[in-house]
Amino acid sequence: MNERYPHRINIAIDGPAGAGKSTVARLVASELHYVYVDTGAMYRAVTFVAQSRGLQLNDSDSLASLASGLDISLLPGEGGQIVLADGKDVTGLIRSREVTAAVSLVSANAAVRSRMSELQRRMAAAKGVVMDGRDIGTHVLPDAELKVFLTASPRERASRRFLELGDKPAVTLDQLEGEIALRDRMDSEREIAPLRQAADALLIDSTGRSIAEIVDEIVSLGRTAAQAIAAREN
């Protein structure tokens, strides 16, 4: 706990793919001495395990059965958060293009979302959590004391992903932009907990802005919110 800012709140950061949510949320959590929960990694883990077991991703019953018995843990590590699925480290495996292309389909499954939301709420029960995803402020943590909707232009989000692929990417920038646009549409149009900005969330557009600048803004907002709540309680 940060002795200078002792009151702990929950911070929800939502937004589309490639907006920088995970990086920003992780750094905000570190600055505030909070726990970072990467909900997207949890859905990716379910997707990876489903693919590795040869499940049909449009088979709702199979996915529901998988999610109900799958143990997913998020642990701190030197290089960032470690993702375990049934005790196996799948941190690097869940970032493949195959998982990325399929995770929206898996995350749209009602039973999968219900199970993951249950685990995520448990993680946030003690407060002091920064959680990022697509429905945190609207569905998972609707009572979060600070909600942010982080976005960026599709081209900028595609450019960021393109740079992450290194010197010899297997996909073009235009292809990545098309994939991001498709995922935006799938996430926004799904029936279960669609991607949308909560009514009380602050919209932050990261286009043309540095990660450090965005982190500083959210940290400041978090400290202000915590101080305001502490003042009301005293």
Rank of each mutant, 00 (worst) to 15 (best):
R4I: 14
H7L: 09
I9S: 08
I11C: 03
G20C: 07
V37K: 11
G40M: 10
F48K: 01
S52L: 08
L55T: 06
D59M: 12
D59Q: 12
D71W: 00
D71T: 02
I72P: 00
L75T: 06
P76K: 07
G79R: 06
G80N: 11
G80P: 10
G80A: 01
G80V: 13
L84I: 11
K88S: 12
V90K: 00
V90Y: 00
G92T: 03
L93T: 06
I94E: 05
R95G: 02
S96I: 03
E98P: 02
T100E: 09
A102C: 09
L105Q: 15
A108S: 11
A110P: 14
A110I: 10
S114R: 12
R115G: 00
S117F: 03
S117H: 13
L119C: 07
Q120P: 12
Q120V: 05
D132F: 03
G133P: 06
G137F: 05
H139R: 10
V140C: 01
L141W: 05
K147R: 06
K147V: 08
T151C: 01
S153A: 12
S153F: 10
R155H: 14
E156M: 10
R157K: 12
R160M: 08
R161N: 00
R161L: 04
R161F: 01
E164R: 11
K168T: 10
K168W: 06
A170W: 08
T172R: 02
A181H: 10
L182S: 15
L182Q: 14
M186D: 12
E189R: 13
E191V: 11
I192M: 11
R196K: 11
L202D: 10
S206M: 12
T207Y: 13
A212N: 15
E213R: 11
V215M: 14
D216P: 00
D216I: 01
I218K: 02
R223C: 04
R223I: 13
T224K: 15
A225M: 00
A225S: 07
A230L: 13
